[in-house]
C-alpha cells in the first residue's frame, strides 16, 4: 500500500480549507433521511496535522483485469451486461488544476433498468444476471482515468410520494490525504430528471450541480461500440510547501 506511483515529490502541505457553502449542508429536509442524520453543533476546525494530510495509497496490484469494465466483470464468459454501452473518462484534478496521479477511484451504479444488485433494494425492475454494478481504477500520471459500463437507468425511491433519481453513477475518490476523501455522484448531460431530484437539490448552487454533470463526447466514442461521457473530478488542493521547511542552501 505504500508503493509510490508518481515521480512527483510527496506532497506535505496542508489542504485548502473546504468551501462548505459549495457542498450540500448536513440538514436538508427535502431529503428526509438527512433530518435525523445531520449533526447540529458547529464543527471543530482543525488545520491539517499529519493525521489529515497523510492518507492511504493503493498500488496497481489490487486491480484485476476487468475491474474497470462493468460490462464484463460480473458477466458469464462470453456474455455481457445489457444496456447502452458507454465509456466514462476524465481527469482527477486538485483545486490548483494539477492532475492527481495514483489515486483510487471506485464506482457503483444500478443496471440499465435502474435496479441495484442489493438485498435492501425493492424496485420491481429486473436484475441483469450479467451485471454486478461495481468497478474501480487508479489514475494515471496526469490524473486521467476511464472505465466501461452501461448507462444506468433512473429509479424511484421512498422520499416524497413520487421521487425518482436521475440516472447516475456513484464515485468514491481518494486523494493523497485522508482529508481529501470524497464521495459524489455523476449525472448525464441533458437529463431532465436532474433538476427534480431532492438529493441533487441538497446542493445549493446551480454551478456546483453542473460540475457533477458529465458531458457527452462524441469525439471519444468507440465507433459501433460505445458512446463516451467526460467527467472530471476535483479534490481539495494543497498549500504549496515551496517556502516551508527549506534548509539553507537548498
Amino acid at each position: 500500500m505504500s508503493e509510490r506511483l508518481s515521480n512527483r515529490p510527496p506532497e506535505t502541505g496542508a489542504l485548502f480549507a473546504r468551501d462548505r457553502s459549495w457542498h450540500p449542508p448536513a440538514f436538508t429536509p427535502g431529503y428526509k433521511t438527512s433530518v435525523l442524520r445531520s449533526p447540529q453543533k458547529a464543527l471543530l476546525s482543525l488545520d491539517g496535522t499529519l493525521s489529515e494530510i497523510t492518507g492511504p495509497v493503493f498500488g496497481h496490484n489490487i486491480l484485476g483485469e476487468l475491474d474497470d469494465d462493468l460490462i464484463h466483470n460480473f458477466a458469464k464468459p462470453g456474455e455481457s451486461a445489457i444496456g447502452p454501452r458507454i465509456v466514462v473518462y476524465g481527469r482527477l484534478l486538485d483545486e490548483r488544476g494539477a492532475g492527481v496521479p495514483g489515486a483510487l477511484i471506485e464506482f457503483w451504479q444500478a443496471n440499465a433498468g435502474g435496479r441495484y444488485r442489493h438485498k435492501k433494494e425493492g424496485y420491481i425492475a429486473a436484475l441483469d444476471p450479467n451485471f454486478g454494478g461495481c468497478g474501480r481504477t487508479i489514475t494515471g500520471e496526469d490524473g486521467s482515468y476511464a472505465f466501461r459500463t452501461v448507462q444506468p437507468g433512473p429509479y424511484p425511491w421512498p422520499n416524497g410520494p413520487n421521487d425518482w433519481r436521475p440516472a447516475h453513477i456513484h464515485f468514491s475518490v481518494f486523494g493523497h490525504g485522508f482529508a481529501q476523501r470524497l464521495i459524489t455522484q455523476m449525472y448525464f448531460e441533458g437529463d431532465p430528471m436532474i433538476w427534480k431530484c431532492p438529493i441533487v437539490r441538497t446542493i445549493p448552487d446551480r454551478a456546483a450541480i453542473e460540475q457533477l454533470i458529465a458531458a457527452l463526447d462524441m469525439e471519444a466514442t468507440i465507433p459501433m461500440d460505445a458512446r463516451a461521457y467526460k467527467f472530471d473530478i476535483v479534490l481539495r488542493g494543497r498549500r504549496s510547501t515551496m517556502f516551508e521547511n527549506r534548509l539553507e542552501g537548498n
Binding site: R96, L182, I183, T184, I209, R236
Partner: peptide, 19 residues
Amino acid sequence: NRLKESPSQTAGPYVHIGL
C-alpha cells in the same frame, strides 16, 4: 485560476456495492 472541489453527494443506501 483555481477550481472548485467537486460537491459531495450522499453515498446512499447501496454504498456496499461499490466499497
